[in-house]
Simulated assay, not measured.
Amino acid sequence: MMKENDRFKETIQTEEELRAIIGIPSDLVKNKVLTYLDHHCAAFISKSPFLVISTADEFGFCDVSPRGDEAGFVRVLNEKQLVIPERPGNKRVDSMRNILSNPSAGLLFFIPGMEETLRVNGKATLVTDDELLESMSHKGKKPLLGIGVEVEECFVHCAKAFLRSGLWKPDSWLDKSHLPSAAAMLFDHAKLPQSNVDSIQKRLEESYTKRLY
């Protein structure tokens, strides 16, 4: 049986070792980082319908979670602050529990069809300001709360990962019949009594059609 410390036999232990392999970033890469949201960043966020937020608890246990809505759902308040409305989800609240113990958060904004992304890092807090949340209502539903982020750095991330993956190229996508079944995965993982793949699929469809907001 493989021991825990046998999984990776040769590892990097220092930044010097890492730099010897990867090299040094160019002046463009080093100089592109801002400590605030300029008009370019604000415009990017206004056109983004989807982001992922990374957080970690006080012990360093990490989580990455998606957030999405119509383009512009994230509100840029000023050059240092933005707010993400919290819509109904699965109630695990992983990101929010982490923020309560460790405010550091990273955001990655996507615009469909655009290979470059926008990275924003900063300190997050849970916002319950009623007037602000009311202004972020959608389809008559006010968000349950908001995730406010105090921006510490932001920068454009290059397109290489998207170009290599072909993510936005429909001709590279799998036929839907070959996609993994979320219902089958949940059935095997959760092992709920008196359930089957069909019943779980119905639960998912009901959630997706009736509890988005």
Rank of each mutant, 00 (worst) to 15 (best):
G148I: 08
G146Y: 00
W168V: 11
L145K: 13
H157Q: 15
F155W: 03
A161D: 01
L167D: 02
F155S: 00
A159L: 07
L167Q: 07
M136G: 03
V151S: 04
V151Q: 01
W168N: 05
C158T: 07
S137D: 10
G140Q: 08
L167F: 11
G148F: 12
A161Y: 06
W168Q: 07
R164Q: 13
K139P: 01
L145W: 14
I147D: 11
G148K: 08
S165A: 14
S165W: 11
A159Y: 00
G148H: 09
V156G: 00
A159V: 01
K160A: 09
V149F: 10
I147Q: 10
V156K: 06
G140H: 11
K141L: 02
I147R: 02
C158S: 10
R164W: 08
G140V: 06
P143K: 07
L167Y: 15
L144R: 14
W168Y: 08
F162R: 00
P143C: 07
G166T: 07
I147F: 05
G148C: 03
L163Q: 14
E152K: 11
G148N: 04
C158F: 03
E153D: 13
E150C: 02
F162L: 12
W168H: 04
K142V: 12
V151L: 04
H157G: 04
G166R: 11
S137F: 06
P143W: 11
L144D: 00
G146Q: 01
H157I: 01
S165E: 03
G140I: 13
L145T: 09
K139L: 12
H138T: 14
F155I: 02
K139M: 14
K141C: 04
F155R: 01
V151C: 05
E150K: 00
C154R: 03
H138D: 07
H138N: 06
K139R: 14
L167H: 06
S137T: 15
R164H: 13
K142Q: 14
G146R: 07
K139I: 05
K139T: 10
M136K: 08
L163K: 14
H138G: 04
A161E: 02
K142F: 00
L167N: 03
H138V: 10
E153V: 00
L144M: 13
W168K: 06
V151F: 05
S165Q: 06
R164L: 10
A161F: 04
R164G: 03
W168L: 04
R164I: 05
V156T: 11
V156P: 01
E153M: 10
K142T: 15
E150H: 10
G146D: 02
C154G: 01
K142H: 01
G140E: 12
A161P: 00
V149T: 09
K142M: 15
G146S: 05
I147A: 09
W168E: 03
F162P: 00
S165Y: 09
M136I: 12
R164S: 04
G166C: 06
P143D: 06
P143Y: 05
L144I: 14
K141D: 04
G148Q: 14
H138F: 15
E153L: 08
F162A: 02
K142A: 01
I147W: 05
G148A: 13
L145R: 15
V149H: 05
I147V: 14
G140C: 07
P143R: 02
L163T: 13
L163I: 09
V149E: 05
C154Q: 03
V156S: 11
S137L: 06
I147M: 13
H157S: 06
